[in-house]
Design a protein around this nucleic acid. Structure first.
Lengths: 164, 164
DNA sequence: CAATTTTGTAACCATTATAGTTACAATTTC
DNA sequence: GAAATTGTAACTATAATGGTTACAAAATTG
């Protein structure tokens, strides 16, 4: 339905950061894993930073890393950070008020959509980024047989990370 | 999230038909209630007809009406008729296979999204078109104070309705 | 049978959201 | 000060949805 991969990409990005631990990742590195443009990643990181999920740092040796414990960060946090605003939408144009159905369908549908959203949120609330990373590990090594490598960093880590 | 009002409109259309009972509605009448173009409605009716939810008839005195008992038609039936294909989408471009996260994130996310979809479907399965119409009635008459009227039909009903 | 009505359907345009790209100032490290 | 990296603007591209016009096919009416 949603022609929109923002949620999938956001979970991907945060999983990468959980995987790499304290080491900040450059938007370039993340973009390579996601297979997109670094600016697309930086735009998404702005949303995630605003929600307090990541912190970033400009300059040489800069990058972004998680601002929270991945075991306590749920997919609901991610979903809400993206401000998607609900699974379904109501009418674009308001229905006719001269019709007994049209005049109230938005109210009734609004209640239904709220139920749907609550159900989605309940599912997302019970899955953490750490859960995702754990489920990533077994199949990851099985499929590739490679040693996990995330970038070409020298291992040094910037000391100060600006708060969002 | 979804910039897409198809589900809302479909429920609206079917509620209209449940309200008006056996009398077939013209796409023109439905479009007036939904506040859109008749062709938009006819396109949606094709999806609903293909799913067996409505039957239509061409020609003078033609129109569309429900093909099923509204008390047995669930919002899940409506949702599936639209072939929306899931609440979230995965990556547009496949992630890097050289990254331990990228190589398996789609598999893990696929499982998560399946859980989400199941939760949505469970909610929709427990609401019928008749439920919607019942919830429409009280507020409808309270708000408008008008006698419910749906169209300008003479009350005569076409005898044969072609099957989808 | 001929006129009228209505759906089915194609073709096209408009709008919107998302994604991709280039460019560059601001920030930080070395 | 040079190099690297984010933040951010501006623009283009792509795709889904919705809106519009037009007309053939089907059904009713007289």
């Amino acid at each position: 339905m949603s022609t929109n991969s923002r949620f999938a990409v956001a979970v991907h990005v945060l999983s990468l950061m959980a995987w790499s631990g304290e080491e900040p990742l450059k938007s370039e590195q993340v973009a390579e894993s996601v297979n997109t443009n670094p600016v697309v990643i930086r735009r998404m990181l702005l949303d995630l930073a605003q929600a307090g999920l990541v912190v970033s740092q400009t300059g040489s040796m800069g990058g972004s890393r998680l601002a929270t414990d991945p075991a306590k960060t749920t997919l609901l946090d991610v979903y809400q950070a993206l401000e998607c605003g609900g699974v379904f939408s109501l009418h674009r144009q308001p229905p006719s008020r001269d019709c007994p159905v049209g005049v109230n369908i938005e109210t009734v549908l609004g209640e239904v959509l709220k139920e749907v959203d609550s159900a989605v949120e309940l599912v997302l609330k019970n899955i953490t980024i750490d859960d995702v990373v754990q489920r990533l590990k077994p199949c990851g090594t099985l499929t590739t047989g490679k040693t996990p490598r995330l970038g070409k960093s020298n291992g040094r880590v910037a000391k100060i990370l600006r708060t969002a």
